[in-house]
Design a protein around this nucleic acid. Structure first.
Length: 943
DNA sequence: TCTCAAACCTAA
DNA sequence: TCAGTTAGGTTTGAGA
């Protein structure tokens, strides 16, 4: 292509752009077409650079349409028809801008003196507004003064709506009645604004600005004014993205308050709400709403929790209990209207509740150091902070890759469809597990950052890969090439240093620095920054390999990922062999070492010695010796000793974890029920307790006894309902399920009861298994715990024994105890069973209840209301027993009630809380039921 | 009763 | 328009 061809190309492209954007009356689409010297990142290239066409269009949105035209192909006069591979044509504009200006997320930017002037036309609601050429901006690396956190203004808020009876609030019907707000300067312990906007009067609350309004319209506008005045940088809350913010916007639409949704920093720019779904294997499917508020970051703590922690419940209540050790009152939405329609005292009550819901997200933000961790993640990976919650892992790697590529004058092709060649590849080796209970110390050897170090050691990268056809063509010297165990060829660094290895080196070096600085740092704020940074650096390094293997991603390269795993497989086999060959009695060691297990980057070795100290010594020796046989920077480290060690199977084990020979650090469990979210607490607690008794106390009979007691309690119906709640994630929408499952069917039934509160995709569904006809499937027996509690439905203890408890227990006890099954599951403790009567379902509706004797439970046939003739003589004794029973239960209920009152923060008000995540709630409800029943029995003594 | 696949969740 | 990887154990429904 010569200069004339370029100008013809320009004209043709301009014409095609006009055709496909007929509706817009843009004078010119393609601003410039330049010839530039660049190189593609794909494959090792012998020449320095080659010519590329750089196309500059008038608006960001035109990039996509331009790309489409070029990919489909255009006909240029004199050159014929040609379709083009485009490069870097699929990059979000904000990211493109940041990369070009060398700006990273969470960055400090300087507008140098003399390079700006007062804004010619005010276009924003910002406190300072000025005009400056983008190229004059100075981006500062996060070092020294510039590593400090900005004093962000953070607004935490929560709204309450008055739903109709039995319905979840909907913006088309139900008014917003309260909004609680806290505004805090990042880093300060206390909010400097604390208010609650209420519909109608509300009694005063100490330390809070209570702002009553007559109409809902006034509330909404007051809130908008608050946003305008406080001008928050970050808006936080719990579930604000999916609920509170869209609700406010939609409500304002319904009320026709046109001036409400101007909440961003761009003057007169309206907030837009859009439905979005996010789906990835890591985070699952998640439906939410995309709310655009320019200039303010929305940080929804619910989203953050779901991404960062694997919990069995994500309710604000459960999360607060978990991280803050604090419960919150959970008022069911159907009660909210009653409180609103009461008086200023009941509305005050609601306001206190609303304030707490605004306060807890702020506490979580502080406690988990979210600002530090996310700002550091943004700084390390270069993406804007908002991407960290709204986008996946790959954008972070891509951002780093694009930045590095720009430095090296490389461009990244926009490859559509599947990557090169096959679409799956072999992963890591998991060594055969020699299951058993080990009473000798087991040393663990680990490769440090295995996959990153392989990529660095063998220079694996897009730009060092030599495809087979090139290998023949280019005639490269064999000594400059590496052939990977999977058969791929990469050039050595002498010829071309890979940019992935370079990124990884920088990440790991920066992590080392951060960790060293962390050791020195005294100031807690500085420590928070550094700790957040080292974590971000580690996570980033580990996700590079995943990025190359993501076939549906931006730039898959299975040659790289399959090479990485193939080296990994070779290395773990090599390590196992070396350990077993070197540490032998023949070579003068006391015992023959045995590798009893290993997974991906670790091997577990039984050296045969009986003290932790000796195992550590040999572990260190082995790690040093074996490290020497690998290419740098691959390193095998001795990490810990397990003693004793219970190996159940691949990916499942438990043991005491020792890093110094004096005392163990902790009990560690992998893969077994204690660390899984889909088991009920009863199983979790039981297994944890047994492991503790076996491993720590070395008390097997004690563990057995504990199991027996638990099983007996279960069968006698003495177990709290909260311990029987099983939770499972809803991973797809109803009709996509091929088979029926307990949690899916329950979600479906709940949807029929109340579509608005039923679980949806991505939610976790709690359920219990209830009694039903013999042979009924589990999915027919699952029920909502609250529903079970309210309707007094009996649970199925046998199911819990056979399908939940028994197998996990046997797996633990079998290596330790002979006849485990007989002893644990069929002993005398399984004989007494409490027969519960379903009170309101099935056949019992037609059954007539017969009175039974209060002494011996025999059916009473004649006259008496209380006792059979047999027990008549014990009248006085049995009466006293009944009275005592009632008074015990009253006391129990009273204690639990007080506990709930304390939790809600007031001792002279009714308890409204119905938190399905709180064990006290279940116990309180049960005590209430038991008490009522006991009173009925007492009433039968009619003298 | 056995076998297989779907679904879930975890290890690394 | 976007979505990090594979290996593996366990439970359960469904059909032979």
């Amino acid at each position: 292509m010569g200069p004339d061809d370029i100008s013809r190309f320009h004209q043709t492209l301009e014409g095609r752009m006009k055709e496909s954007n007929r509706s817009s009356n843009v004078p010119r689409f393609v601003k410039r077409v330049e010839l530039v010297q660049k190189q593609t990142i794909m494959h090792y290239q012998t020449q320095e650079s080659q010519p590329f066409l750089k196309i500059v269009v008038a608006l960001p949105t035109m990039v996509a349409s331009c790309r489409g035209i070029l990919e489909r192909g255009i006909t240029i006069e004199g050159l014929g028809s040609k379709s083009f591979l485009t490069y870097e044509s699929n990059i979000l504009f904000a990211l493109r801008f940041m990369i070009d200006c060398n700006i990273v997320g969470g960055n400090w930017i300087e507008v140098p003196a003399g390079k700006y002037r007062k804004a010619a036309r005010v276009m924003s609601y910002c406190q300072l507004e000025l005009d400056c050429l983008f190229s004059d901006l100075v981006s500062h690396a996060a070092e020294g003064e510039y590593s400090k956190m900005a004093p962000f203004r953070i607004l935490s808020f929560d709204i309450e709506c008055a739903g109709r009876k039995g319905h979840f609030p909907e913006p088309t019907h139900d008014p917003v009645i309260q909004i609680a707000n806290l505004v805090t300067h990042q880093g300060e312990g206390q909010p400097f604004v604390r208010n609650v906007m209420t519909l109608k009067s509300c009694s005063p609350i100490v330390g809070v600005d209570v702002m009553p309004f007559d109409t809902e319209r006034d509330i909404l506008l007051a809130w908008r004014d608050l946003i305008r005045e406080v001008d928050p940088d970050i808006i936080i809350g719990y579930n604000i993205c999916k609920f509170d913010l869209p609700y406010l916007i939609e409500r304002a639409e319904v009320l026709k308050i046109a001036e409400f949704p101007i909440l961003g920093r761009i003057r007169n720019s309206r907030v837009r709400v859009r439905d979005t779904t996010f789906s990835s294997r890591q985070y699952g499917v998640r439906e939410s709403k995309d709310v655009t508020i320019e200039g303010r970051v929305q940080f929804d703590l619910l989203q953050a929790m779901q991404r960062d922690y694997k919990l069995s419940s994500y309710s604000l209540n459960s999360v607060s209990a978990h991280f803050l050790g604090e419960q919150k009152e959970d008022v069911h939405h159907s009660i909210i209207s009653d409180l609103q329609n009461g008086n200023s005292e009941t509305r005050r009550r609601l306001a206190v509740y609303c304030l707490k819901d605004a306060y807890l997200p702020q506490r979580l933000l502080d406690k988990l150091m979210y600002i530090y961790n996310y700002v550091e993640m943004a700084r390390v990976t270069g993406v804007p902070i908002s991407f960290l919650l709204s986008r996946g892992q790959s954008i972070k790697v891509l951002s780093q890759l694009l930045r590095k590529a720009k430095q090296k004058n490389l461009v990244i092709p926009n490859i559509k469809g599947q990557g090169s060649g096959q679409d799956t590849f072999e992963g890591a080796t998991v060594l055969e597990a020699r299951a058993g209970y080990y009473e000798k110390p087991i040393a663990t050897l680990d490769f440090a950052s295995l996959y990153p170090s392989i990529m660095m050691a063998y220079n694996l990268c897009y730009c060092t890969l030599v495809p087979p056809e090139d290998a023949r063509k280019l005639n490269l010297p064999p000594e400059s090439l590496n052939k990977t165990p999977s058969g791929e060829i990469f050039v050595k660094p002498e010829l071309q240093k890979g940019i992935l290895p370079e990124i990884l080196e920088e990440l790991l070096a920066a992590r080392k620095r951060a960790k060293a600085d962390l050791k020195e740092a005294k100031d807690p704020l500085e420590r928070a920054v550094l700790d957040g940074r080292q974590l971000a650096l580690k996570v980033s390094a580990n996700s590079v390999y995943g990025f190359t293997g993501a076939t549906v991603g931006q730039l898959p390269c299975l040659e790289i990922s399959s090479s990485v795993t193939s080296y990994g497989r070779q290395m773990i086999e090599h390590t196992k062999k070396l350990v077993e060959d070197k540490f032998t009695t023949v070579a003068g060691y006391e015992h023959n070492a045995e590798v009893i297990y290993g997974d991906t980057d670790s091997v577990m070795v039984q050296f045969g010695v009986s003290t932790v100290e000796d195992a550590m010594k040999l572990g260190r020796e082995a790690a040093d010796y074996i490290s020497g046989t690998f290419t740098k920077p691959i390193k095998l480290e001795f990490e810990k000793v397990y003693f004793p060690y219970l190996l159940i199977s691949k990916k499942r084990y438990a043991g005491l974890y020792w890093t110094n020979p004096e005392k163990f650090d902790k009990m560690d469990a992998k893969g077994i029920e204690t660390v899984r979210r889909d088991n009920c607490l009863l199983v979790k607690n039981l297994v944890t307790e047994c492991l503790h008794k076996i491993l720590v106390d070395r008390d097997v009979p004690g563990a057995v006894q504990y199991v027996k007691n638990t099983i007996s309690d279960l069968l006698m119906n003495r177990v709290d309902l909260s311990l029987l709640v099983i939770t499972k994630g809803l991973t797809k929408t109803g009709e996509d399920y091929a088979v029926k499952a307990a949690h899916v069917e329950l979600a479906e039934r709940m949807r029929k009861r109340d579509p608005a509160t039923a679980p949806t995709v991505g939610d976790r569904v709690p359920y219990v298994i209830i009694k039903a006809a013999k042979g009924a499937k589990a999915y027919e027996k699952s029920e909502d715990p609250i529903y079970v509690l309210d309707n007094n439905i009996p649970i199925d203890p046998q199911y819990y024994l056979e399908n939940q408890i028994s197998k996990p227990l046997l797996r633990i006890f079998e290596p330790i105890l002979k006849n485990a099954s007989k002893e644990l599951l069929h002993g005398s403790h399984t004989r007494s069973v409490s027969i519960s009567t379903p009170s309101n379902s099935g056949i019992m509706k037609f059954a007539k209840k017969k009175l039974t004797c209060l002494g011996c439970k025999a059916i009473i046939s004649g006259g008496s209301q209380t006792l059979c003739p047999h027990c008549k003589g014990r009248e006085a004794e049995l009466y006293c027993k009944t009275v005592a029973n009632v008074s015990d239960l009253e006391m129990l209920f009273g204690r639990l009630w007080t506990q709930c009152q304390e939790c809600q923060g007031s001792l002279h008000q009714d308890v409204l809380c119905t938190s399905r995540d709180c064990p006290i709630f279940y116990r309180r409800r049960k005590a209430q039921k038991d008490m009522a029943e006991a009173r009925l029995q007492l009433d039968r003594w009619d003298f």
